[in-house]
Amino acid sequence: MGVHDVIEGKKQWRAHKARVKALPPDYRIVYQEIQRYVFKVGVAEGLGEPPLAGIAEFFEEGAAAGKGVLELIGDDVAAFCDDLLG
């Protein structure tokens, strides 16, 4: 991985974090829990570039539709993560 790749990765990560920050508060809280869970188990591959980009997009669509975050993922965040990773 060259310097250009590192710089580009940081740009993507910052843009991703800005998208997450724009989510409603309940979505941000759940996103942070999902991120913590996924990073803790060490499985971030296959979840988009940057990691969890698909979750951010899924949450953006849910928020735009006026749905609550728990309507999308259910009451158990860990079970949602297990299904996501499984």
Rank of each mutant, 00 (worst) to 15 (best):
Q32K: 13
P50N: 10
A56E: 02
G66K: 03
G42Y: 07
A56L: 05
G42E: 11
I7P: 04
L47T: 12
D26G: 02
A63R: 04
A44Y: 11
G9W: 00
G62F: 08
A22E: 11
D83G: 14
V77Q: 07
K21T: 14
H4M: 11
A44K: 09
F80S: 00
G66F: 07
Y27I: 05
A65D: 14
E61V: 14
I55S: 03
A18V: 01
E60Q: 15
A64W: 10
G66Y: 07
Q12K: 14
H4Y: 10
G2Q: 04
P25N: 07
A18L: 12
G48C: 10
E71V: 04
Q12V: 05
A53W: 05
L47Y: 02
L52G: 04
Q32F: 08
A65G: 01
P24F: 08
D5G: 12
D82V: 02
G86P: 00
V20C: 04
L70F: 15
I7K: 13
D82K: 11
A65V: 07
D75M: 07
Q12W: 06
R28V: 09
A63T: 07
Q35R: 12
E8Y: 09
E61F: 11
G86R: 08
Q32I: 00
A22F: 09
L84M: 15
H16Y: 15
A78W: 01
D26H: 07
P51Q: 08
A79M: 10
D26E: 15
F58V: 01
E57G: 08
I29Y: 13
L72S: 03
K40T: 15
D5T: 12
V69C: 06
P50E: 01
K17M: 15
L70E: 13
E61L: 13
A79K: 14
R14H: 08
R28K: 12
A79E: 13
R36W: 12
I55M: 12
H16I: 01
